[in-house]
Computed example of a mutant assay.
Amino acid sequence: MKVTVDQDKCVASGQCVMAAMEVFDQRDEDGVVVLLTADPPPEQAEDVRQAAAVCPALAIAVEG
């Protein structure tokens, strides 16, 4: 699994962090998404896909 984020699209809703806090975080100054790991382990795959699905700005892409 390969995860990418588009920080320019991010609207800082925090939905990704709530869905997969091991993979996503938010910048303190503006809440924009921070990708903690671009290659999460298989046991986090479902949470990462959920995070991408609930992102209101569609700023998360998941391959694989």
Rank of each mutant, 00 (worst) to 15 (best):
D39N: 15
C10Y: 04
V33W: 02
D8V: 04
L35R: 06
Q7A: 14
D39M: 07
Q26H: 05
A20V: 01
Q26Y: 03
K9F: 11
E22A: 15
F24W: 09
D30F: 00
P40G: 07
V17Q: 02
M18R: 14
S13G: 13
A19S: 10
M21N: 13
A38T: 11
C16R: 01
D30I: 03
Q26F: 02
E29T: 13
V11Q: 12
V32R: 14
L35E: 05
V23M: 00
D30V: 00
V17T: 08
M21A: 08
Q26M: 07
C10F: 02
Q26A: 10
C16G: 01
V11W: 09
D25Y: 07
V23K: 00
V23H: 01
T37N: 10
L36E: 10
A38D: 15
M21E: 12
E22C: 04
M21C: 07
A12S: 15
L35A: 07
M18T: 03
T37P: 05
A19N: 01
T37F: 04
A19T: 00
Q7T: 12
D28C: 08
A19D: 00
V34T: 13
C10K: 01
F24A: 02
D8I: 06
Q7D: 06
V23W: 01
E29V: 10
Q7F: 03
A19L: 04
V11H: 08
V17G: 02
F24E: 00
G14R: 06
Q26R: 15
V32G: 05
D30K: 01
T37I: 12
V33K: 03
E22R: 14
S13R: 09
A12N: 13
D28R: 11
D30S: 06
G31I: 00
V17N: 03
E29M: 08
D28P: 11
C16Q: 02
V23R: 00
F24R: 02
D28I: 10
V32C: 10
A38Y: 09
V34I: 15
S13V: 10
M18C: 02
G31M: 03
M21P: 13
C10W: 01
K9Y: 07
L35I: 09
L36P: 09
D30T: 03
T37R: 11
M18H: 13
Q26I: 07
G31L: 03
R27L: 09
V34K: 04
A38V: 10
V23D: 00
